[in-house]
Design a protein around this nucleic acid. Sequence first.
DNA 1: CTTAATGCAAAGGCTTTGCAGAGAC
DNA 2: GTCTCTGCAAAGCCTTTGCATTAAG
Lengths: 139, 139
Amino acid sequence: MDPTFAQRDTVESALKGHGLQATSQRVEVLRRLRASERHLSADDLYAELIGAKMKVSRATVYNTLNLLKEHGLVSEMVLDPGRVLFDPNTEPHYHFYDVDTHEITDVPADKVGFTCLPLLPEGATFKGVDVVVKISRRG
Amino acid sequence: MDPTFAQRDTVESALKGHGLQATSQRVEVLRRLRASERHLSADDLYAELIGAKMKVSRATVYNTLNLLKEHGLVSEMVLDPGRVLFDPNTEPHYHFYDVDTHEITDVPADKVGFTCLPLLPEGATFKGVDVVVKISRRG
DNA sequence: CTTAATGCAAAGGCTTTGCAGAGAC
DNA sequence: GTCTCTGCAAAGCCTTTGCATTAAG
């Protein structure tokens, strides 16, 4: 079975599992996000899809990403103002952030451990930790 | 000696220490940022200044904040797209982030410790860690 | 007097919205 | 046939920019 079909199938199942129609635009957005090494912006994805001669509009890419986000299929990362990236990895994990190139790399969750975390404010529930390790290659 | 004068004086020294003219707009932006319990956006500050009947323009607030950022007198935080906040605390520290209200609270650095951090990519220099502990009060 | 900072208004980039047409079921 | 999604273009929001005016040293 060819891997592209397998991916497409999984993506379709994921969409349908959330009660979402598996339209070609949605399938392609989620599939490419999952297939990409990098974390992509809405515009990155739009450019990819247009480059692949697909019929899609910018608005649909934005709307689709928001829809996927609402359904927990992708998460949003905002590292620079005006640079919103989407991360298809819904498992706990952290990030390297190159402060010069703005490149993002994943760090598996087991590479970061805490000896202590702060006491939560009264009445608060823990919802997760975001850890961004900032690095530079310029010294 | 009245505390407002003391604050103003410290802020002026900080600006001059970086070779920046201590104009009334710059002094007030930095002073209010330091005096605030919350982390403020450019527009929050603009509204505060206008409310205090000061002569200032939006452009100057934005330009001043960027200037302060370049000189390391404040740091920028981007937690939601379109919500850039400025943090006058230049000591290492982390943040609580209320996912419902988008409120930000400081966590002193000594409340968070790591048992391990990931090996850096080849040739990379460590530039810091951002830790955001996400919380909710809705359960 | 010379240099630098401010204010205004216009432009810019990214994202969302409204509505008509196309597509899914 | 009905309901939903898509595409287009326009509007929105936040931020930056250019240039004349004003303030600082």
